[in-house]
Design a protein around this nucleic acid. Sequence first.
DNA 1: CGATCGGTTGAGTCATCTCAACAGAGGTGG
DNA 2: CCACCTCTGTTGAGATGACTCAACCGATCG
Lengths: 210, 210
Amino acid sequence: MTDSSRQRNTDALVAAIVQMGAKRRLGKDAQIYAQGETAAYVCLVVTGSVSTSRLMSDGRRQVGDFYLPGEVFGLETGETHRFSAEALRPCELILGNRAALNSLAEDRELERAMWRAMSRELDRAQEHLALLGRKTACERVATLLADVASRSDGAADLPMGRQDMADYLGLTIETVSRTLTQLQGSRVVEFAGFRRFRVSNPTALERLAA
Amino acid sequence: MTDSSRQRNTDALVAAIVQMGAKRRLGKDAQIYAQGETAAYVCLVVTGSVSTSRLMSDGRRQVGDFYLPGEVFGLETGETHRFSAEALRPCELILGNRAALNSLAEDRELERAMWRAMSRELDRAQEHLALLGRKTACERVATLLADVASRSDGAADLPMGRQDMADYLGLTIETVSRTLTQLQGSRVVEFAGFRRFRVSNPTALERLAA
DNA sequence: CGATCGGTTGAGTCATCTCAACAGAGGTGG
DNA sequence: CCACCTCTGTTGAGATGACTCAACCGATCG
């Protein structure tokens, strides 16, 4: 999950959404769309942060991914959304009408951009599969920290709370918490508050992320 | 993973691959492409079965998905394959040149078909995320059995061995084996040999799959 | 007929989960 | 300004599901 893989640099898709989309403000925890809903919009994050997630009938929850400013989500399905999307904090989004974007599809550049975005989603999902299927709790947490840290320089801010981290990593909130204190104890990262942190030992973090 | 979600019915993509692709035979365990390799081909399974997988530096392995006759794989990435693909048994494939397919892209029908196929891959990956992140061993095995059974009527054949099941489900081979005997003991499924089985109690299996 | 391969079974260990108590930050009202 | 409450996160103790290591079993093959 480097900057380029997240496609934070503007491309044709971002440009099209900005040009034709409708801006919208959302409060914390607001639902942007629900799972099963018809996929009407492709969304660009302007400020704030968003997560996609899926709920099982008994309440178990799996977070699919997190999206930061400059990133596009909502592209992930065919007819209906398989995940729901929620604002992790107050957000400003631009919603691009899916049908309108498709009808613009004579635009080769836009088409390629949508393809790339979809491809990126799939890459990330596959990386996530290996994390959930084969990594230890410590490796999972280290991977997430490395990922977030790679998207900012110096001190980084976790865009999500502990529960969202746990649901992303396939762990419990207690295990996430314990692992974080352990990672601090071994001087790999340093926390200032619950969310702000600095990577003290990038090499060690990289190695732990496996 | 219903028939329709696997797109076993021929569509424009399958048609295009059949028309312009090169047929190829492969022995068991043959590698079709490696992770990191440039994605040159989109592949259609004619006979046999295929798995995609990803290897970590220390040998841990995550299987991404399994593909049966009529299904298309190799579409999953942008420039390079993030997973490798191997034949689970002797196979007959048709390899469609990726560039050639892209150049045919004035064909709206083909384009939509490729989009749908990509979408399907993503859907399946997301379902797989929830399985790995939040399901118990028993639920995972039940889900896989239900999935395979839904693709055939009456008795079904597991296209893969225990190790591949384990690497798909994020479990060890021993846990898979134990769970299978337990599922037989409770009369949910009935095995005849290591691979051939019948669902004795579809309702129970559905419930266990969660 | 022995060797090999894939699968099963058993015993003991360990990572992670569960349940429960505690702690700090921030908000609210008296 | 303080007492209280809620919300989020941390810590502890004990339980447990899945893993590890090792033996065993049956089928297949040379």
